[in-house]
Every structure is written in structure tokens, then in C-alpha cells.
Amino acid sequence: MNLPHSISAVAASLALAIVLPAIAQQPVRSTAQAAAGACEVLHWDRAGFDKPTLSITRPGKYCLDQDYEFACAPLAHGCMGHLIDIGASNVDVDFRGHTLRVSGTRSFSGVLGNGRNIRIHHGRIEGAGKGIVLSDKGNSPVGAYPALPVSTTDVFTATGFVVEHMQFSDVRTAIMVGGSGNQIRDNRIDATLDNTAPGGPPFALLSYGPAARIERNTFRLSDLTPGWKGYAMYLRSANGTLVANNTVQVGGARTGTIGVGLSSSTDVVLESNEIDTETATELDERSSVRQ
């Protein structure tokens, strides 16, 4: 009889009996659960870009793990661009509380996106000329500047952009979106309207296209250039858009400030907004509202 071997086998079995229950009690996180909140961290490709540029070229979930800053020296050249460049549809960018910061220039933007179903959320943008600009082919919001003529032949695609839980400070324009069915909600926007845009009066938010929902945003307008007018929200071709539960405040003189400007926009619903501008609503002859 091989006693030592039997004793060893029994000892191994006892050890297994002790260890297995302990393992069974450990919480197990499935692969699907782990993947559900996963994101690809954006990093600056220093070899490819001399300025901090975070590029997205394919669908997916992305996030930041640090702040990014671009400082342009006075009188320096080449201070144009944007910090996050999105060239794909079905993209989610979670700032995770981080900040994109620009100083020394108004020609640098925070986020430029081209595609559909792009969501930007939970972060901060400071000092940029434009905070977030999102469009699809043929629906660029740049074509809807207040001084430009209205196009009656536009066909808007279902872009489905979402900008939510973002904070903007010391920006000239916080958000510009073009397309149909976009949502802008729960943002804090501090806009410095201290000059005129290339296409006319400045604005904190521009929505170009129908069926948008602009809800629960807080605006604070300041430093509007004397003799000019400036908008918290400017809407063009925005048929069927809902503007609800927004707050607009003015720091300093209220002269020339406008809460909501409508251009060629019919059946717009204005509901439960608190607007402290000189003029609450400005409509052109092609626009109508329901309250």
C-alpha cells in the first residue's frame, strides 16, 4: 500500500474543498458587463499633429482621461484648428469631467464633427471661438448664420446629434448643429459675445434644421459689442422644434440681447423658458411659435 501517496491525495482534496467555496463566493463580472461601459481613450498623436488634435475616424465609444490645452502666443500664425476631430457616424465621446481649454486665439474650436448620431457629453470647453460644431454632408450650420439668406431647397438628414451635460465658459459660440432631430440638453453655457461673427450677429447656440429639442440649458450672455444684437439661441429652418425649460441670464447691459431668434421656422414650441434678455423672442415673417 502506497501510504504517502494516499495521504497526499487526501490533503489535496481537502485543500480543494476549502478553496472552491471561497472562489464561488467571489463576485463575478461577465464579459458583456465589462464591455458595456468600455471606451477607447483619446490621445494626442504628437508625431502626426503639432497641435493637440484628437482624431476619430470610425464608429465607437471614446473618452478622455486628461485635460487638453492649446495656447496660442500673441501674433503667432497657424492658430486655427480644433481639439477633437470626428469624421465618422455613431460616435459617443464621454469627456469624463475633463476640459478642453483654448487661450490666446478665437480661431481654435473644441469639437468638430461630421457624420450622424454623434453624442458629446459630461465635460467642459473653455476659451474657444466655437465649442462644438456638428453637421452632416449638406447640413452645415455655417450656412445658417443670421446675415446669410435663407435657403428654401435644403433637405435635412436625420442626424440625431446629442450634446448634454457640457459646460462652456468664455466661448463666443458654444454649440452649432445642423440636421434633423438633434438634442441639446442640460448644458451650462457662458458666452462672451464681444464681436460679430463673419455672418452677422453673435449667438451662443445655433440650431439649423427641424425637430430639434433644446431643453434645460442655462445661458449667461456677457460683453455684447455695443450697437449690435446677440442671441442666446438662433434657430433657422427649425420647423417643429421644442425649446423648453431653458434659462437665459445677462451679465451687464441687456441692450441688444435676444433670447430666441427664429428664421424661417414654423410651429416652434416655446415652453416654460425663463429669459432675461432685452427681447425674449425675435421672429421673421416666415416664422411662427406655439406657447
Rank of each mutant, 00 (worst) to 15 (best):
V260A: 11
T153E: 14
V260L: 13
I175W: 00
T266S: 15
I214V: 08
G179Y: 01
R213L: 09
S263P: 00
P149D: 10
T241F: 01
G131F: 06
I132T: 07
A147R: 13
N217T: 07
D170Y: 08
I214H: 01
I258D: 00
N139R: 08
K137H: 15
G227K: 01
V250R: 00
A147Y: 08
L134Q: 05
M233P: 00
K137P: 07
T255H: 10
M176K: 06
S151W: 06
L148V: 05
R213Q: 10
A204C: 10
V163N: 07
E164K: 11
A197S: 12
G256S: 05
L148T: 05
T266I: 13
S151R: 12
S237G: 07
D186S: 14
T192L: 10
G227E: 04
N182P: 05
V269F: 11
A244W: 00
S263Y: 04
S207H: 09
D136V: 06
G261W: 01
V155H: 15
Q249Y: 09
S180Y: 02
A158I: 11
L193H: 01
T192Y: 04
G256V: 02
H165N: 15
T157Q: 15
T157E: 13
G143C: 11
Y208E: 08
G256M: 02
F168Y: 14
L148N: 11
A158D: 15
L270R: 04
V248F: 01
F168L: 11
E164P: 05
L134F: 09
T153P: 04
I189A: 03
H165D: 15
G251A: 13
T255R: 10
N187D: 15
P146E: 08
V150F: 08
S180P: 00
G138C: 08
Q167K: 15
G181V: 03
M233L: 15
Q249T: 14
